[in-house]
């Protein structure tokens, strides 16, 4: 059987030449509502965002193309597809309306501008799931209910387990020895709920946590070698290194160099914050005094 026919036969394995990921229509939730006579509000949710997260990089763009027979397509260009997908895969916005939305389809495209906008992820939904959805007004972001560290691998238990306990020195503490994966112990004063759901608490704790574990692994590899979690964290560290290799955190001669490790881990933590932490603003009503002076 020639390659050509093999590709045509549905029962055979088809080679994916393009590495493009296609989202099933059932994984796209397309809701639309008439805001007024001229405008529609839409909300699109990628239900399988968690499995897409590993495929996106910060430079990718997202395009929503709204199509209706015999009319110019309406395009909504969004930057930073990664932030949208890692943030729960939901996009809301407005498009021109004034017609029956039943025949309106949407195409979701994630493309890479560095490769002539080659498509990385795509999905098509032929018609809306809900035509009179209740889509909230205003651009206030929805509360983020993701724990960026636990979702980092996209499967399994994740990289850190969070526990609430009285037996803790300070607001939070880490337990790294003799555990299946690092334990983040949270004092009741902060609470596990706040650690898992509150973006501000995450901003305060998670970068320190990543910094601590990466530094420990880089400086005292022999101590942690036998720990079951060390492999997964090294892999995570490689992902954050920017070069995809653990040697980034080590000195050239293999000897531990504390200053170098600290500087390199600092870069890794910065990448972690860019990729995994939700975007937040300063708390309202508390101007930054330092800037005013």
């Amino acid at each position: 059987m020639s390659i050509k026919t093999r590709l045509r036969t549905k029962s055979e394995t088809v080679i994916n030449f393009t590495n493009r990921v296609d989202i099933k229509p059932s994984h796209i939730l397309f809701e639309i509502a008439a805001k007024d006579a001229r405008t529609f509000r839409f909300r699109i949710t990628l239900r399988n965002w968690a499995s897409l997260a590993a495929r996106v990089s910060p430079r990718y763009n997202m395009t929503l193309q709204f199509e209706r027979g015999g009319e110019p397509a309406q395009r909504v260009n969004l930057d930073n597809a990664e932030r949208i997908i890692r943030g729960g895969g939901t996009v809301t916005g407005e498009i021109d309306g004034g017609f029956d939305p039943a025949a309106l389809g949407v195409k979701v495209i994630v493309s890479d501008p560095a490769r002539s906008h080659q498509i990385v992820i795509s999905g098509v939904k032929g018609k809306p799931d809900i035509e009179d959805a209740d889509i909230p007004e205003g651009d206030a972001p929805e509360p983020n209910r993701i724990n960026p560290i636990r979702k980092a691998t996209g499967k399994g238990d994740g990289l850190v387990n969070v526990y609430e306990s009285d037996d803790v020195a300070g607001g939070w503490d880490l337990r790294l020895r003799n555990v299946e994966c690092p334990h983040l112990i949270v004092s009741p004063a902060i609470g596990k709920d706040s650690m898992v759901n509150d973006a501000r608490t995450q901003h305060l704790v998670f970068p320190q946590l990543v910094r601590h574990i990466l530094t420990e692994l880089a400086l005292h590899h022999d101590i942690y070698e036998a720990e079951p979690w060390a492999k997964a964290w090294r892999k995570f560290g490689e992902e954050l290194s920017g070069i995809g290799d653990w040697s980034y955190y080590m000195a050239d001669d293999g000897e531990p160099d504390v200053d170098l490790v600290h500087a390199r881990v600092r870069d890794g933590v910065r990448r972690y914050c860019e990729r995994y932490l939700p975007v937040i603003d300063a708390p309202a009503g508390r101007p930054n005094a330092a800037n005013e002076e």
């Binding site: 493009r20 395009t63 193309q65 397509a73 260009n77 493309s111 002539s116 906008h117 498509i119």
Partner: peptide, 17 residues
């Protein structure tokens, strides 16, 4: 269009394609 986001490309990029 199956593999490229045509709407974001420039005319020159498309011509090369």
């Amino acid at each position: 269009a199956r593999n490229y986001d045509i709407g974001r490309m420039t005319a020159l990029q498309m011509l090369r394609l």
